[in-house]
Structures are given as C-alpha cells and as structure tokens.
C-alpha cells in the first residue's frame, strides 16, 4: 500500500534502465549481459556471492568503469558515454564498499565538499560562512545520518560504523534522485545495522536506490524487490518473500558465501 502510493507520487518512468550491459577484465567476464530496470523511487536489493559482479555493475552505472557492451539510461537519458561527474549532476549517487572519505577533514567538511561538488563555482578562495547554503545543507546531512554529535571531528577519529554512515551522507549531498549503496552494512554491529536501516528508511520517498547487501535481514527491511546475481548474470528477480524461500537461490547464494 505504502509502496503503491510512493510509486504513484513520482513519474511512472524508469529511473535506471540497463540493456545488455557487460564488462570484461581481460578474459574475465565480470558482468555478463545484464538487463533490468528500476522504476523511479523503487528500492531494490542486489544479492550475490563474492565476485558475482555486483560492484562492477555499480561501476559501469556510475561511469567509474565504462561498460564493454550495452546501454545505460538514467531517467530516460542515455548516460553510457558520460563521465562520472556528469552523472552526478544528473542526480546519480553511489557509496563505496570500502569507505572513500577525506580522512584528514572533519565530518562536516566532507559533507560540505560533497554538496559543493554538485554545484557551480567549486574553486573559491573564500571561507564559507556557517550560513552559506552548502554549509547549512552539510549540517542537515550530518543530522540525517545521525552524526551531528561528531560533526566537527576528523574522519580518522570516527568508528567504522560512523564512517559507513558518513559514506551514506556523501551520497545524499546535492539533490540525489537515485543512489547505489555498495554493502553499507559490511562490518557493522547489530546496533549499527539497526541505525543504518533507520537512516535508509528515513530517506525522502522520491529517492530510489539499489542496495548491495549480503545480510538478507537488512536487505529485506529496506528493499521492495530483489535481484540475485551470480557469475556476472542476473540469476533471479522477484519479491523478497519469494527470493528468501527460493531453493535455487538458497543453494547458490549460501553456497557461494560459504563454499
């Protein structure tokens, strides 16, 4: 019910459309002819064992690595050839599996730069006042990711969990329309996981996302649909309840994790 309302509130278009996307590294086909689409505002989980090609798929979507084959559309526009920063300006965001933060800078400055990066005039010799719009936006982001109390601390002094939260905050800067989360819960304690789920659930409803998540429990709490990848291909797609009980998924997913 809730989901239906949310999907109605945004255009019924696709946020992301992948057709025949592949990426090869030498002889290795890391992503193999992947075709799927995600509607605007939809929240999708991608499951898959280690090396299934999940991160590589993200890299082709964000432009970190161009795909070897296939086309990628973002809200109807073909972005296959665009450099990463152009995709950012169109509202596409990502987080990294290993936090990519500015360790020497305080939390607030990390967020501030993420906000400035999206805008114009990025090379100013002036100090931004605390009432500068980007500064205010950074404050709000710190609040949204529950890091207000440590906003002035350098990243190097944060716990792992706090760094993962900041990683999410960086992706929320500007006006994101669609976010790719790469294993945001990796290495988190159960309490930190709950906090993460709270943050993700509190995101504005028009923001859709794909979340790569090994922890089925986390994935199922925040995602409406699930795609399972295996050996670079889309292996299964469906509703969480069906995926959870699918014997083939059980075998491959759990087998891949532990075998």
């Amino acid at each position: 019910m809730q989901r239906a309302e949310r999907l109605k509130s945004v255009a019924s278009s696709n946020a992301l459309e992948l057709s025949g996307v592949s990426r090869v590294f030498g002889a290795l086909v890391a992503v193999d002819n992947v075709t799927f689409s995600v509607t605007a505002g939809e929240r999708r989980a991608i499951l898959g064992s280690n090396g299934a090609g999940k991160t590589t798929l993200f890299n082709t979507i964000t432009g970190d690595f161009p795909p070897s084959n296939g086309r990628i559309r973002f809200f109807g526009e073909d972005i296959t050839e665009l450099p990463p920063y152009e995709r950012i300006r169109r509202g596409l965001r990502r987080t990294y599996q290993n936090s990519q933060l500015f360790r020497g800078l305080p939390v607030l400055d990390n967020l501030y730069l993420a906000v400035r990066g999206v805008g114009r005039r990025r090379m100013s010799l002036l100090r931004p006042g605390e009432d500068h719009p980007a500064r205010v936006a950074a404050q709000q982001l710190a609040h949204a990711i529950h890091l207000e109390d440590v906003a002035d601390r350098p990243v190097s002094e944060l716990s792992h969990g706090q760094q993962r939260q900041l990683e999410i905050g960086m992706a929320l800067a500007g006006a994101p329309r669609f976010i790719l989360f790469d294993e945001p819960a990796a290495g988190l304690s159960p309490a930190e996981r709950r906090e993460l789920v709270d943050i993700l659930k509190a995101l504005p409803t028009h923001i859709g996302f794909i979340i790569i998540e090994h922890d089925l429990a986390v994935a199922l709490q925040v995602a409406e649909t699930v795609t399972v990848m295996h050996q670079g291909r889309v292996f299964k797609h469906g509703l969480p309840a069906d995926i959870e009980t699918d014997p083939e998924v059980q075998r491959i997913y759990l087998g891949g994790r532990h075998g």
Partner: peptide, 8 residues
C-alpha cells in the same frame, strides 16, 4: 572520491 563528487 574528489573526482567522483565532481571536482577537477
């Protein structure tokens, strides 16, 4: 990361 968030 700087490149990724839009800086030159």
């Amino acid at each position: 990361r700087m490149r990724a968030i839009g800086f030159n």
